[in-house]
């Protein structure tokens, strides 16, 4: 089955609430499809009243609607699954598909496709493929589409049994490694895999990053991703290299994890700011197009978030989407 065409976005937050600028983004860029993350499935340690507990795959961070879904864009539900879950529950596919179906029904979402996002490896490949086969049967072959994200490193493996794949052109580097110059997108990294693209036995579409992040390091150790910290604040940070900032003074910030009493930044800590300029995305796009004609019939932007896309001009966004028009 051929992938879709047109412009698309990922929505990867835990609450559904769009700002005016986000609504405007969808309209201005004629976005036809929203790949909507519904929930994650991760292993949770389940205590069994003093007896040795066990790890149980459990839905986490389920999307909550602060406002109803009132867009005309098609919705593609996406479920992110950590690969260790695949080995823990043979009924996982049934549970996931049932929950997705119930979620969509409760929230009045029409859906014709399910996408699975999983960073599977060789060691978990068989379990993952078996999971996908079961999911496909649950969806009814030919009735609802099943797609999956494809990470660059997964090119060296056989293709998963889905209708099409979304080539994830982001999170290409090891974000915990201080030496990784840009963990979001590295042209070099993409180039090293791009040749495998033309022989890949699965229809593909592609997703590009329109976001940035700040990685906090203490010494060589990765500490956390910073979200709202302002690295342009010169009393707290000074630039000490390309994308590299040194923390000047001690202060605490807010963390999304309530069990940690605020994240403390110390003098001497370093922050690596990863941002992918539109030029880089376009370079990667060109590179991939030469290897896989028609890859850009649909382009997905990751992700719909005013904080991120406001760092790009409308022209840049348009050029990222461009060739599919």
């Amino acid at each position: 089955m051929a992938p879709h065409s047109g412009n698309a976005v990922y929505y990867w937050r835990t609450t559904w609430q769009l700002s005016e600028k986000e609504r405007d983004f969808l309209k201005r860029n004629s976005v036809q499809r929203i790949y909507l993350r519904l929930f994650d499935v991760t292993n949770i340690y389940e205590d069994n009243e003093g007896v040795e507990g066990r790890l149980v795959p459990t839905p986490q961070a389920t999307l909550h609607f602060n406002e109803p879904y009132d867009l005309t864009c098609e919705v593609v539900p996406v479920v992110y699954i950590t690969d260790d879950c695949l080995l823990a529950d043979s009924m996982l596919a049934e549970k996931v598909v049932t929950r997705v179906a119930q979620f969509c029904e409760t929230n009045d979402l029409l859906w014709n496709e399910l996408q699975i996002d999983c960073d599977w490896r060789k060691s978990t490949r068989n379990a993952y493929f078996s999971f996908l086969e079961k999911a496909r049967n649950m969806l009814g072959v030919g009735k609802r589409t099943l797609s999956a994200t494809i990470r660059l490193h997964q090119f060296s493996q056989p293709a998963p049994p889905v209708d099409y794949g979304v080539l994830m052109c982001y999170n290409t580097g090891d974000l915990t490694d201080k030496k990784t110059l840009n963990a979001i997108l590295s042209v070099r990294e993409v180039r090293s895999y791009s040749e495998k693209l033309k022989d890949y036995p699965l229809p593909l579409t592609v997703a590009y990053p329109v976001f940035s992040w700040k990685r906090l390091f203490r010494g060589e150790n990765f500490v956390a991703l910073l979200r709202d910290t302002d690295i342009d604040d010169t009393t707290s940070f000074s630039k000490c290299g390309e994308g590299l900032y040194k923390v000047n003074r001690s202060f605490s910030t807010v963390t999304p994890d309530p069990s940690i009493f605020g994240l403390q930044l110390f003098p001497g800590d370093t922050v690596r700011y990863d941002f992918v300029p539109a030029d880089t995305v376009l370079l990667v796009k060109q590179l991939l197009e030469t290897q896989y004609a028609g890859l850009h019939k649909q382009v997905i932007i990751y992700s719909l978030n005013e904080r991120d896309f406001s760092k790009y001009t409308q022209n840049e966004i348009e050029s990222i989407y461009a060739s599919c028009k």
Partner: peptide
């Protein structure tokens, strides 16, 4: 928060006279 952060600034492993 202010005083303990000041302590941290003055006792950082990496010395910085400006800070």
């Amino acid at each position: 928060d202010f005083l303990n952060s000041s302590f941290s600034n003055l006792n950082a492993a990496e010395k910085n006279s400006k800070r």
